[in-house]
Amino acid sequence: MARSERELLLVKRTIARLRVAIVAVVTGMVVGFGLFAATAWLVIKGGPTVGPTLGLLRAYYPGYSVTWTGSFVGFAYGTLTGAALGWCVAALYNFLARRRSKRR
C-alpha cells in the first residue's frame, strides 16, 4: 500500500481526543464571562427591581447578587462551574473514546 493511501486510511481511523485542560479553561471562560455579562447588563439597565430571576442563582452561589460586585462574584462562580463541566465532559469523552477504541 502506498504511503499516501496509508495516510488516508490513518485519517479515516483517527479519533479525536479532547485536551481536558483546554476544554475546561474555555468552557470556564465562556460561562464566567457569560454570567458576568448577563449580570452587568441587568445592572446597567437598572429599574425598580434589578434581576429578580437571575438573582435566584444565589441558591447555588453564596454571595452572588445582581450588582456590580455580584457580577464579579458571578464571574468567579461561573468560571468554576463552567470549568468543572468542561473538564467533566472532556475527561469522560476521552475515557469513553479510549475504551471504545480498545474494543475496536
Binding site: 490513518l10 483517527t14 469522560l92
Partner: peptide
C-alpha cells in the same frame, strides 16, 4: 504527518461524546 492529521481531521467518537455530555448533564 500523524500529528498533523490528528489535529486537522480526527473524527469525534460520537457515542463517547454523547456519553460524556449525557453523564455530565445528568450529574449537573
Amino acid at each position: 504527518v500523524e500529528s498533523m492529521l490528528q489535529d486537522a481531521f480526527a473524527l469525534y467518537d460520537e457515542v463517547a461524546m454523547g456519553g460524556a455530555v449525557g453523564i455530565t448533564a445528568s450529574l449537573a
